[in-house]
């Protein structure tokens, strides 16, 4: 099998949600001292991008999206020690902090976004649910974060998303971070009203949005 073919197999293992095959191919990449950065980018990474496309088209749903991202993470975990020992490291696409805002305990959307971002090479700090705006801002400063993502499912707690922006403004550090919103009730109108940098309809869109903002 030539290298390109192995990359295709790797991508296929993610798209066909075949964990056993993905793990096997990741180990094979280590054994054969393949270019591990390329393995992630052209192999497994291509697979997770396809999973995103299939979700977008309505061919894949939540279970497939989560499985694909989890298998991707497994493969990357196998490869990471090899990357580190070779002195090269998978270049982080950027650092994203995620939290569900104060008053809201819904975690599923945020967790899916976190999983997809990690699978796409972002470092993710997940603060969990019911997190106060003050804590989000403090952790963003401490963690040298590029993008702050604030999630909410409830229209009642949506108003608290704005607090994050207000607080950044008060501290005169609004320009240090990009702030994005997520959650079913969020619209472009709300993003504009709050002065946030964007929102995404779903986890796949959120990866695209974060990539755009970080450039």
């Amino acid at each position: 099998m030539d290298t390109e073919e192995i990359y295709r197999e790797m991508a296929n293992s993610i798209v066909s949600l075949d964990q056993e095959k993905a793990v096997h191919l990741a180990n094979q990449a280590l054994d054969e001292s393949m270019d591990l950065l390329q393995v992630i980018e052209k192999g497994f990474g291509e697979g997770i991008r396809k999973v995103g496309d299939l979700w977008d088209e309505g061919e894949f749903f939540l279970p497939e999206l989560m499985s694909g991202a989890q298998i991707m993470e497994k493969a990357v975990d196998i490869i990471t020690p090899g990357l580190q020992s070779s002195g090269s490291e998978r270049q982080s696409s950027g650092k994203v902090l995620l939290a569900t805002i104060e008053g809201d305990i819904h975690s599923i959307g945020k967790t899916i976004v976190a999983t997809m971002l990690k699978a796409n090479g972002f470092q993710v700090v997940d603060l969990g649910t019911d997190v106060k705006a003050e804590k989000i801002v403090d952790e963003a400063i401490k963690g040298d974060i590029d993008i702050i993502g604030v999630s909410t499912l409830l229209t009642t707690t949506m108003v608290n998303q704005k607090k994050v922006i207000d607080l950044l403004n008060q501290k005169n550090i609004r320009n240090k971070f990009k702030v994005i919103f997520g959650g079913a009730p969020v619209t472009q109108g709300w993003v504009d009203e709050c002065g946030a940098d964007g929102y995404a309809e779903n986890a796949v869109e959120s990866v695209k949005l974060v990539k755009e903002l970080i450039q």
Binding site: D56, E57, G58, E59, F60, F61, L62, P63, E64
Partner: peptide, 12 residues
């Protein structure tokens, strides 16, 4: 509503 395949639950 999905883009091309009609109505589905989020779990498919």
């Amino acid at each position: 509503k999905t883009k091309t395949r009609g109505f589905f639950t989020i779990m498919g």
